[in-house]
Write a protein that binds this DNA or RNA. Structure first.
Lengths: 337, 337
DNA sequence: CTGAAAGCGCTTACAG
DNA sequence: CTGAAAGCGCTTACAG
């Protein structure tokens, strides 16, 4: 059951191996090989079920057609969906994907980069953990194309595909404000992460644009790693303290879930007592909340843009013109708000 | 910025390439290379930051240290978690994983097997879609180790790591029955899949063992691809028709979610009006159902067993003694039932 | 103890 | 138009 090689085909077709290689790589015309010979070779390759040995091709050409994808955590739905789409697009273009997860651990992230490098991957798609700057700039020095997703390091000059966090929150806020809501709270997390900061800025500025000064805005910041029970308690308390609240904006889906539980515990109805807008969808919303408005992450756009950006660099060796590409989330109304 | 090769090291250390290879592969002793020479070689390798070219190693040794993992859908939490654990274990043993998803499509599944084969993977971990039998037995003929997970093809003689569906349902049913519940409905899906059938059998037989004959058992079968709204309607109707119901057993988490919505719509309480047991956990349960009992899938056990089964075959070239390995799910009580 | 050489399966510049 | 040959970076059987 030995694999057939280019040599076997050459022997059977009565030509030399190089001829077989040219024919099978579509260079028959270029090399002025007669149709007769070319067809013979193709026929033999066909009937023997020949498949080139990719390892040998890689060694010879220096290309592996393998891309490395480093996400934060493959078991998280957002990244899993991202990975799936990237995988599909990559396969369609003849690339394979090697995945792994940093778990937001700088050390592990750097390890993985090294590992993928040994693995001879040709390019990298990364949602970087903080602290991976050095390792990533090393990749650039090694002339390996890199595209970042969802996060970025300002000033590092690496093409990045990002969610338009500011624009998304602005749109959601305008939706509420245009409906006449004024007392809108923003319940966020105390995390020094660029995405979350952009979202908060958008809240503050959109409110201001509608004539509500910062002093009258209502922001609650929960500690980063607070557990479900604590978060629900804090939010419930907060809602009770602010009896005049008309709406709440949650800048991330987990907060939204906690919020829903608080609202349910307090016996309030949506959107009767409170209107809710949440950045980023969650399965739970589908079932339990006819009156919630979602700002849906543009996962598909991010994935396809990123993979194409990367393969373009690989094929033409040219950089993207735009360094930071922002994808706008879309507003989804589930029932009335 | 050219990579350093074994030749470069040989030159700098004043030896021939083969000596370098022996030293770096830990065969210095075996080849009786002097410590002095060996240390010199190691020092040079260290300071030049030498990393072997895996492609060349693969071509020469015929080994790639890459495993193929084919799941149904990487964007599904169950498979994503499975993949994550497998990836971690594999990396720890020096293997890399190439993932992909069949989307339960026989054609795509077979394509993927071929693709991974071209990619020179050494072994396969597969959650097969129906219809992939031929392609998988081809792998065995090619002498490629295969381990199946979660599903199996009876009589195909391929090591499979499975959930003990029967045992899990039996345990959940006994839990209910021991608490005194007698009128227990089983709401399932009309799908000719081995897992679901085992679960149903367990319901029927456990009921019988407690003295409730099949005529008095209550089973509802929903069509396979019914949407959420239809499913919820059917279940609501069913509950209304069976006023004397004391408990419901859902053999899969999506049905449980639909069931919860029906119960909520009907204004019933859990476990006051109805006790609920569901096979397989779901995020939603965590938030909305203090009185639900879960039969938790043994994801971690499946993943680690499967990967070790595969690597054992690769390292020792020996088959597993047991062909079918069943992992027992665990019963998790959320509040009282 | 060490070195020279073959060969894994390809691709491609070169000679004819 | 076709063929002989080098070489990608390794490993390992063989000779000395």
């Amino acid at each position: 059951m030995k694999r057939v090689s280019i040599k076997d085909i050459a022997r059977q077709a009565g030509v030399v191996p190089s001829t077989v290689s040219f024919v099978l790589n579509g260079k028959a015309k270029e090399m002025r090989i007669s149709d007769e010979v070319a067809n013979k070779v193709r026929a033999v390759a066909e009937e023997t079920g020949y498949e080139p040995n990719r390892t040998a091709v890689s060694l010879r050409t220096g290309r592996t057609k393998i891309l490395g994808l480093i996400v934060e955590d493959i078991s998280n739905v957002f990244f899993a969906k991202l990975a799936k789409i990237i995988e599909d697009e990559a396969y369609a273009m003849g690339y394979k994907i090697l995945y792994c997860s940093t778990e937001n651990d700088k050390e592990k992230g750097c390890e993985l980069v090294k590992m993928l490098l040994h693995q001879q991957v040709e390019g990298f798609l990364i949602t970087p953990a903080a602290g991976m700057e050095r390792e990533i700039s090393r990749l650039v020095e090694l002339n390996k194309p890199v595209v970042m997703m969802d996060r970025y390091f300002p000033g590092m000059n690496i093409p990045s595909v990002l969610v338009d966090n500011y624009g998304g929150v602005k749109e959601g806020m305008e939706h509420l404000l245009n409906k006449g809501y004024r007392k809108i709270a923003f319940i966020t997390v105390d995390l020094n992460q660029i995405q979350m900061q952009q979202r908060e800025t958008a809240y503050v500025e959109t409110m201001k644009a509608y004539g509500i000064p910062e002093e009258e805005q209502v922001v609650l910041k929960l500690p980063y790693k607070s557990n479900a029970a604590n978060a629900v308690d804090r939010i419930s308390e907060f809602i009770k303290e602010h009896q005049d609240l008309e709406a709440i904006f949650f800048p991330t889906n987990y907060l939204g879930v906690y919020g829903l539980e608080s609202i349910k515990n307090l016996g309030l109805s949506i959107p009767g007592d409170l209107a809710i807008v949440c950045f980023d969808d969650h399965d739970i919303f589908r079932l339990y909340t006819p009156g919630i408005t979602i700002i849906k992450q543009p996962i598909e756009e991010i994935a396809t843009t990123a993979i194409h950006l990367l393969t373009n660099q690989l094929e033409d060796k040219q950089q993207a013109e735009e360094l930071y590409i922002f994808k706008k989330p879309s507003l989804v109304l589930r029932g009335s708000t």
